[in-house]
Computed example of a mutant assay.
Amino acid sequence: MRIERGAAELPKAGKPSLYWLGQAGFWIETGKHRILIDPYLSDSLAKKYVGKKNDHVRMMAPPITVADLPRPDLVLVTHGHTDHLDPETLGPLHERFPDLPFVVPAACEALARERVGEDAKLILIDADETIEPLSGLEITALPAAHETLARNDTGQHLFLGYGIATGDLRIYHSGDSIPFDGLSERVKAFAPDICLLPVNGRDERRASEGIPGNFHLHEAIALAADYPFLVPHHFGMFAFNTIEPDVIDKAAAEQTSLRVIRPTPGECLSILTEKASEETWTRSTAAPTTTS
């Protein structure tokens, strides 16, 4: 894979890229499909937790509004927490695009219908299943542990990650997770080019306050070590549940084979998926071109 410098805008058809929305949210352009995953573009959690100790006030503004989002081809949701399944982001998106399909964990169907819309086009999936929701696009669901491998009463996983495969591009988004037995083997079987992993970590204080944790940065680096690129996320949104950017940058500078690319909101990372011996990343700072 070769990744070259690209334009400072949402890529045109055939120009794969990543665009970080903050938290675990990404706009993913595969070159053939436009995919939105876990977008949190509202202040719904700040409203929910107003006056509480962990008030969920945003540290970063949304890089784009829901009203200005172009129509994606597909929306992926990894689990039911509001910063991933946000009614004030996904509900308005469904209203704008009633035929838009949403891939959601089967265990979260009822919650998804409540938050997205009773008539929303939901594609239900569980861990270790692979679907082709669009021509030429495969989505593989991997289990996730946030912090446990939780299941509902019928055995369906509450937390998922997704392997996104199209052509010669393979991207793994873990959802919210910590390491667990069998994860590295599943990731190896998928063989991603790019790993999108949370790095906000976990500790006793957060656990005592009911805040489930994620990979520590060193754990995310270890999981991604056999693959070309790691793009960390799930930091810089809430002051009680983050990691400093300079910690990520320092760890990135210490890597030899793995390239750790710390994104910033409103930044487009352009990818060229042609075979080549040299790999470079493009980093630019413009919001996506908007259309209705």
Rank of each mutant, 00 (worst) to 15 (best):
D86V: 00
G155Y: 08
S277R: 12
L111P: 05
A224N: 12
M237T: 14
S42M: 04
A253N: 08
I243H: 13
C195N: 10
A189C: 08
A112F: 03
S177Y: 02
E138H: 13
L158P: 01
M1I: 09
V247S: 08
I64Y: 07
F102M: 04
F229Q: 15
R262P: 01
H56F: 06
A127V: 08
H81D: 00
I194G: 06
L169R: 00
A46R: 03
K121L: 09
D38N: 14
L74S: 06
L258K: 12
T290I: 14
F240H: 15
G210V: 12
I139R: 03
K275E: 12
E114T: 07
A287Q: 13
L158C: 10
E95Y: 10
A24V: 01
I125G: 00
G22K: 09
D126G: 05
V231W: 04
T289V: 15
I131Y: 00
T65L: 04
S42Q: 06
P101N: 11
N200A: 12
Y172Q: 09
R151S: 06
A224M: 13
I64E: 03
F240E: 14
P70G: 11
L183Q: 11
P92A: 06
D168K: 13
P11C: 11
V199F: 01
E114V: 08
P265W: 04
K32A: 10
A224K: 11
V77F: 09
G51I: 08
G266W: 02
